[in-house]
Write a protein that binds this DNA or RNA. Sequence first.
DNA 1: ACGGTGAAATACCAGTTAGTCCAGTGTTAG
DNA 2: CTAACACTGGACTAACTGGTATTTCACCGT
Lengths: 239, 239
Amino acid sequence: MTTVTASTQAYAQLAGDLTVGRYAPGSRLPGERDLAAALGVSRATLRLALSRLESEGALQRSAQRGWFVPTQLLGEPPSTLQSFTEMARSRGLRPTARVIRQEVRPAGMDEAAKLRIAPAAPVIEIDRLRGMDGTPVCYDVVILPESRAAALATADLTDASLYDELRRRCGVEVHRSAYTLMAESADAELARLLGISAGAPVLVGDEVAYTSDGTPVLIGHNKYRGDAYRFEADLFRRV
Amino acid sequence: MTTVTASTQAYAQLAGDLTVGRYAPGSRLPGERDLAAALGVSRATLRLALSRLESEGALQRSAQRGWFVPTQLLGEPPSTLQSFTEMARSRGLRPTARVIRQEVRPAGMDEAAKLRIAPAAPVIEIDRLRGMDGTPVCYDVVILPESRAAALATADLTDASLYDELRRRCGVEVHRSAYTLMAESADAELARLLGISAGAPVLVGDEVAYTSDGTPVLIGHNKYRGDAYRFEADLFRRV
DNA sequence: ACGGTGAAATACCAGTTAGTCCAGTGTTAG
DNA sequence: CTAACACTGGACTAACTGGTATTTCACCGT
């Protein structure tokens, strides 16, 4: 058992963030002063952790410039949380979104529990039909607490990226999402919206998104056409 | 009946101060020397009281830093890559696996490319019908290069965890997996094996697993009953 | 008078912190 | 193009932290 010193904790935290892809390969880390504050540790201690990561090749230092995540660390693309919009763009497709519903209503019990707000507290529900290059691909329901995202209640979200708008208009940054995926059959209504036949397989994703301090800020419920969408992720094994 | 020793008095005093909110959650307590003086006890005695509070969860210690009042919001991201076996066990179910095929054959072009081995190099293919508490849930195909997993060609993998056996028998530790998930319809053969009706939705997962040095060691192809399995993952967003 | 026990006092160690100052870098205003 | 400025990591210091060990003392029942 290794001693749990502050520096080893900082090291573990950073190493985890790196393997999980929190910092993109080739990018610069926040300054030592900011990082130290974020990790709740002094700068000297932080530097111990950074030096250790450097000796392991997980980081590269550049004097008077900053710390950098090595590009091409070990080949493959690291894990990511990519929004629908980002994914479409990275494949050279044009993401679209048609707003079907956008309203403020009281939260149900389940929603309130997941968002850690009071039952019947106001939430914003946004239903959108999302597509790529005009072809409908996904029926997307998002629920946010009004207290954190009031600006989205009236914003025009046609063809917009919700994560982007959430950051720009509400200053809310999503850091982590817990995803659940399953396969279901399309009912008549969904089949009509997505332009597929009833009973065709759909990929159903449930999401709860959190900020970096662990506060839930968003519930997502997505139904993708089975023949038009694949969900990709990198998973890491706990050590 | 508890003896009124100096340490229990110090403990009671501190516990009271904590419940009353004298020290804010997340804040650091005064140093042991100051605290001992304030309570009128020696440092050794104080530490008995502190240790007792720690064991009750009322305080957290951090070597060379100080004692901290726990903040109630905890909850770091849970694990990310869980094997079928681990997932079943964590839910109190008994994982089962019936071996349907287990053979050594030359790799196809696709497989060779994904595993980064020579085309037609020998690979082990293992097909298994996996279940929980006896109910079939997943049809599972795994392909490994024989050069790295020769011991698995003849091992009895009934009801075994492949990741476990890979580690035990071959010394190969999976660190990261690239997953692709999609929804499909079951064909007649698969429907028969999983005990569902043809055309029912199935969750199809394609996996390439890597060791920590980035070498691919395993291709997986899993078809889950849509009504009996959910895939869960934590995804992180870059900053 | 005996040993046992809890408390206190003391000292030292290694890890941590907050602070300062420095030289090099990148950006920007003029 | 240059000068100014904000920011970066690098290096260092002094004070402080809990962790540990040792010694001394006061009290108790026998």
